Amino acid sequence: MGFTYAKLPGGVLPRFIDPSALERSTRRYKSAQTSLIRHFCSTCGCHIGGINESTGIWQVSPGIFAQREGNFVIIEHIFTKSAPAGLHEWLPKIGPRSVRVWNPDGNIAEPRMPQPEKDENGKDWLRAECACGGVSFTIPRPTPEVFQDEYNRGLVSPVDPTKWKAMTDACNDCRQNTGFQLNAWVYVPLKLIKPRIGLDLTHGFMQTYSSTPGNIRSFCRVCGATVLFWGEERHTTDDNYVVNISTGILRAPDGVRADSWLTWRTEELGWFDAGCKYDRELYVSLNEGHRDWGRRVYGSLTDFKLPSPHYSSAQ
């Protein structure tokens, strides 16, 4: 949903603890639209920060530090015009303090909105693609087969049968494996993804990492984008698995939240208690902003859980 960086004073550089080292432990990526060279862990994909190619100033990812608001203070949302329907609408303030919004003059931050896409049968599909394009696949809207399956039916929006459930996530594991304080996921049956992705979650430039036993995360090994999360318990048969897709890589024509495709849970952030133990003021404010947005957009708060699978082997 958005990067969070803390800019270090000029001349202050991260000091790596042996045996890790910048060049040995990270990969780097720079897009043509920015002067920031991003660094991410070559093993798990966690973003540690980046260095401005022009000034040599470092920006670090706060999510990887044991922090509180006193250590890293979020003061502004930047380039919000380039990411319509983004995180700034959920986090207008932290505690009593407003978080300002900044955009550069001119059209530098003007969005480049994707065009709607359809499959060979004329049905809608939504593309998921990382920054470098090395990982690219599509998902459909909920299909008749989804509604015929008791488990998969539980992934569909409770208020709109053409949309999927989506949830923001404040858990420790996600934060430490991405470097950012908030992650967001949409939940989709793996077999609906095209081109097909296997249970090892390999596709294009995807690299996998097992963060905890039974859980696998995948990220692009070129640009570091978070792509998928898979838990071994999230299936009912040997060919009916569910994966989390990072909403940050969705290329929805209507903006970052993909509102025309997703219904967001607004009653409470996912793993809200874990977030509060990490930075209570931040997550309480984000939760309040999330709820205010939900009331304004949906008319009421949406609350749902993911279905609990009852696995039975197909063999």
Rank of each mutant, 00 (worst) to 15 (best):
G2M: 06
Y5F: 09
A6K: 11
A6L: 06
K7T: 15
K7H: 09
R15F: 12
D18N: 14
S20K: 15
S20F: 13
E23R: 12
R28Q: 14
Y29P: 05
Y29C: 07
Y29L: 07
K30Q: 14
S42R: 14
E53W: 09
V60Q: 00
P62I: 12
P62T: 13
G70H: 03
G70Q: 02
I78L: 01
A83E: 12
G86V: 10
K93N: 08
R100N: 12
G106I: 03
P111I: 05
P114A: 10
W125K: 13
C130M: 07
G133E: 05
R141T: 04
P142R: 01
P144T: 11
P144F: 08
F147Y: 02
F147A: 00
D160P: 05
P161L: 04
M167W: 08
D169Q: 02
Q181T: 11
K191H: 06
H203T: 05
I216H: 05
S218R: 03
S218A: 04
C220F: 03
R221A: 09
V222D: 14
T226I: 10
T226S: 12
L228Q: 00
W230L: 15
E232V: 15
E233D: 15
D239V: 10
N240P: 02
N240G: 04
Y241P: 06
V242L: 02
I245A: 01
S246Y: 04
L250D: 05
A252L: 08
P253I: 06
P253K: 10
R257V: 08
S260H: 04
W261F: 11
W264T: 00
R265I: 07
F272H: 14
D273F: 12
G275A: 07
E281D: 06
Y283K: 11
S285Y: 08
E288V: 04
R296Y: 13
Y298G: 10
T302L: 15
F304S: 01
K305G: 15
L306T: 08
P307H: 00
P307D: 03
S313P: 07
A314E: 12
